[in-house]
């Protein structure tokens, strides 16, 4: 056979492949953009977080945060997910339903949320909360953010950021008055039905552009007067029928009435 007669050892090919793979892997590991790693909370913070977790979250997520039939495992979701879910009042979930609603709540202060985040982050590495610089809208390019928003976000959240329906009672929430930090964390962790837009997909700079766009459009939402919720032609049509036509009929009744 040809392989035997050649001067190369039969194992050379396998070896070469192995070396090649090893080099590629090492180079990739060294160069590839890294997921943000776990925040390094102090031991006491993690311990505080564990206690809060056990009393508030473990019913559904399990004592070890490895999940139960009622709630997913939180190993590896990272501090960003905890900060988003608890910080927006989605967790602890108020009632079973298709989706956890955003609720204005004073249930936990930021220190407690940070403690729980540190505990969850200590379980396994995951995305951490963004830095102040990463969410500084004034450094973002709203025009570029708008283009990204229309291609990646508008099909669910609507171009006005008013929100939209998903299947079976689920929905993409409106983006009005959402904190920049939470917008960033949502893109990074993909809560509920939302896909994950990781840093390879949309870079941190681009995330900042999107935040800038969302903030600026909100400032201009009512340029032409009351925006009727930003839901487009449906409320406009309703308004024309009920309010507009109502006024017209009132005017007609007035004009056709006889002076007494």
């Amino acid at each position: 056979m040809k392989a035997l007669t050649s001067r190369r050892h039969p194992a050379a090919l396998v070896l070469l492949l192995l070396i090649g793979l090893l080099i590629t892997g090492s180079v990739y590991a060294a160069l590839a953009p890294k997921q943000a790693t776990a925040a390094n909370g102090s031991a006491s913070q993690i311990e505080d977080g564990r206690k809060l977790f056990e009393s508030n979250c473990s019913t559904c997520h399990g004592v070890q945060a490895t999940g139960t039939p009622d709630g997913p495992s939180l190993v590896g979701v990272g501090a960003a997910a905890v900060d988003f879910q608890v910080g927006t009042g989605r967790m602890p979930m108020v009632a079973p339903g298709p989706q956890a609603p955003r609720i204005k709540t004073e249930m936990f202060d930021q220190d407690q949320i940070d403690a729980m985040a540190a505990y969850v982050a200590s379980l396994a590495p995951g995305p951490s909360s963004p830095t102040a610089d990463q969410i500084d809208a004034s450094k973002g390019d709203a025009g570029k953010g708008g283009e990204l928003f229309r291609v990646n976000c508008a099909m669910c959240h609507s171009s006005a950021g008013a929100g939209g329906a998903l299947t079976r009672g689920k929905y993409a929430p409106g983006l009005k008055n959402v904190e920049p930090k939470h917008i960033y964390e949502a893109m990074q962790t993909g809560p509920q039905s939302m896909p994950v837009f990781n840093d390879n997909n949309i870079t941190p700079d681009e995330k900042r552009d999107i935040i800038a766009y969302v903030q600026q459009t909100q400032e201009h939402a009512s340029t032409g007067g009351q925006s009727l919720g930003g839901y487009g032609p449906v409320p406009e049509g309703m308004f024309a029928w009920i309010f507009g036509m109502g006024l017209m009929v009132a005017a007609a009744v007035w004009a056709a009435s006889r002076a007494n």
Binding site: R150, A154, M155, C156, H157, S158, S159, A160, A162, G163, G164, A165, A172, Y231, G232, P233, V234, E236, G237, M238, A240, W241
Partner: peptide, 8 residues
Amino acid sequence: TAGAQPDW
């Protein structure tokens, strides 16, 4: 965009 409707 979500919520794309025609005029009434």
